[in-house]
């Protein structure tokens, strides 16, 4: 008797937690104007047919609604994100996770073309299969947004990944470059100097690894 009650309590708690989590992650479209909801649904249906994640599209629309943007601007932003996701899929391939696609879309949004992104993603092979490629993509898009040129940004990160850099080194690199740029350093120079510094650390840590090519 006690056991069955306990089971029911645990089951109830699980349901409650699940519902809170669902409420926290799903987008509520009930308050949207019908025309907007219909147009976003249509874009999302098209994305779904291409095996693209739809949640970021609804989140983008919800952001626009909350920020008071007009419907046309919201649809434009959602359409653009859908295109960025599509290009990210073309560059990263069918095996990319949803999180990698979202991060890849951000890189595309920063102006990188599909072939260059595809080439950069190929350095994924240098990482253990269990490791996500989200962080290298996030750092890449951030560097591009900070006006580091594509060649320097991709060379820096590819070099670091080939030498076993982990997410921790990449996020530190991102933060340090951002700080240097804010301090007046040229974006490309900041990226080169910081990359060299991390490479020196990695080389010390992994003696015997071949010398990194200069970027």
């Amino acid at each position: 008797m006690l056991r069955s009650r306990l089971t029911m309590v645990v089951f109830g708690l699980t349901l409650a937690v699940a519902s809170v989590r669902a409420q926290a992650t799903s987008v509520s479209t009930a308050q949207w104007p019908a025309a907007l909801r219909e147009r976003v649904d249509r874009i999302a249906d098209s994305a779904k047919a291409q095996r693209l994640p739809t949640e970021p599209l609804y989140a983008k629309a919800a952001e626009g609604v909350l920020k008071g943007a007009d419907d046309a601007r919201i649809v434009q932003a959602v359409t653009r994100l859908s295109q960025d996701l599509r290009e990210a899929r073309a560059a990263l391939g069918p095996g990319a996770t949803d999180a990698e696609l979202v991060a890849g879309a951000s890189v595309v949004h920063s102006g990188m073309d599909v072939p260059t992104l595809r080439k950069f993603f190929s350095t994924h092979d240098a990482r253990p299969q269990s490791e996500s490629f989200v962080m290298p993509l996030v750092v890449l898009s951030d560097l591009l947004a900070r006006r580091v040129t594509q060649d320097v940004a991709t060379a820096s990160l590819s070099n670091l990944l080939e030498h076993g850099a982990k997410d921790a080194e990449l996020t530190s690199l991102r933060r340090d470059i951002e700080r240097d740029i804010s301090g007046g350093q040229s974006p490309d120079v900041a990226a080169r100097l910081r990359t060299d510094a991390v490479l020196a650390t990695l080389s010390t840590a992994n003696r015997g690894v071949r010398r990194p090519p200069s970027i």
């Binding site: 952001e63 008071g68 943007a69 601007r73 434009q76 653009r80 490791e131 996030v138 921790a168």
Partner: peptide, 15 residues
Amino acid sequence: DDNFGVPSSVVVVKG
């Protein structure tokens, strides 16, 4: 990459 003219803050979470 704000699309709506109202900025957002950003947090980056690593693996």
